[in-house]
Design a protein around this nucleic acid. Structure first.
Lengths: 219, 219
DNA sequence: ATTTATTTTTAGATTTACCTAAATATATGA
DNA sequence: TCATATATTTAGGTAAATCTAAAAATAAAT
């Protein structure tokens, strides 16, 4: 597989939610910052090589073979992210670009040894699960904000209660999906939390904390 | 710089003894396993970009800019070799191919952090010096076999006494340039050594040991 | 010093991964 | 449903790095 093929497959995997559904040409193009016509070209090639199923004008979705290929690349990407963050001291926002390059290094032995060196981590520094050698994927470790301890960190990935009132509350306090949250303090009395979000501190009630899904950062 | 340009520059550096003299087209072609005509093409490009000096039919040699570029690549290559051997437990003969890929990763920060992580090594697992951030190159650490301690290892890189008798001796005992030697034991009485070479043990006198140059492995 | 052999370069193709512009298919909306 | 908008594909082209085959320059050998 060429580097470019790998990038397309990874993109299709992500955009199609792990190969669940098909992905339109334009989505791939804008993600990879290429022209739609280039995507069509590559899709044909990937289809010839049986990595994707393709019907003209109907988008693509990954085949079994394509999903496995994607998982292999993602495994490499996330292992390198752990290495960069944990061993070399990169910040968790700096790891991505370099991992994007490292994920294309071809050596199974290298990845296995790296995996062992890092002590077989299950999650990358963003909290995303690292696929195993055989493609098995740990459950994404979703937790409620209320279950975290002081000093734990995570990313806001969803809400349990999606009522308008709750969402308005989040909006008012500038809490949005993808925000990085750190627990500063937990009040035993009412189980309220002091959290740091966007470099600002915020005190939230138990009620709020039990309705926010968090993806813990660094397992 | 493209990956291909980097490979050419590195090759020209090595074949031309660190940029000392010019390198014929064919030598580059056979080293890189391409056709001479491809080399001519690339040479023109590198010449346009001022990495090499080029006169038709006269071979190429590296410019100042080219030498610096080469040193940067070699620095990356050798640091990765140390990482692979020391941290991941690769054998010293397995590191080259993977390092060949890793050397093309583009991130100055990555290399600096890797350098620090490895504790600023001066030599790679083959005993070759690692260029510094500013291109300074440590002296290749040549030592006489007689100066090593038990458990030290090295590669046979030259002889001090090049008399016929000595060379015949080496031949007879199957000692040749590039051989990997490990000191097993040193006899205090006559300063003779027991060494392991090619998986065979050999007992040699002080006289012999003081006439063999060794490049120590893992400084 | 010529001929012969070797090395290097030119000329013209090929492949990969792009691109632009035009054509066509699908989706949307009055 | 018919016109319009949007998405996708086709057609034809480009740049990088390679190739083969032929031409030209240099080196070697008688």
């Amino acid at each position: 597989m060429t580097r470019s093929e790998e990038n397309y497959i990874k993109t299709i995997y992500h955009l199609g939610d792990a190969g669940m559904h098909s992905v339109p040409t334009n989505a791939i193009a804008s993600q990879l910052k290429t022209q739609p016509s280039s995507v069509t070209d590559m899709i044909k090639k990937l289809s010839d090589k049986k990595y994707v199923h393709y019907k003209k004008y109907r988008g693509v979705y990954l085949s079994e073979k394509g999903i496995n290929a994607a998982l292999t690349i993602i495994r490499k990407h996330r292992l390198w992210e752990v290495f960069l963050a944990e061993k070399l001291g990169f910040n968790w926002d700096e790891v991505h670009d370099v991992a994007e390059q490292l994920e294309h290094i071809k050596s199974e032995k290298l990845i296995d040894k790296l995996d062992a060196f890092l002590n077989f981590p299950k999650y990358d520094p963003h909290g995303d699960p690292i696929p195993g050698k055989n493609g098995e994927l740990a459950q994404r470790s979703l937790q409620l904000l209320s279950s975290l301890q002081p000093n734990d960190e995570g990313i806001c990935v969803g809400v349990k209660d999606s009522s308008v009132t709750f969402l308005k509350f989040l909006d008012k306090h500038n809490i949005s999906l993808g925000d990085h949250i750190k627990i500063l303090d937990a009040e035993e009395f009412d189980e309220s939390l002091t959290i740091q979000i966007d470099n600002k501190n915020l005190h939230i009630s138990k009620r709020i904390a039990t309705n926010l899904f968090i993806k813990p950062v660094r397992e």
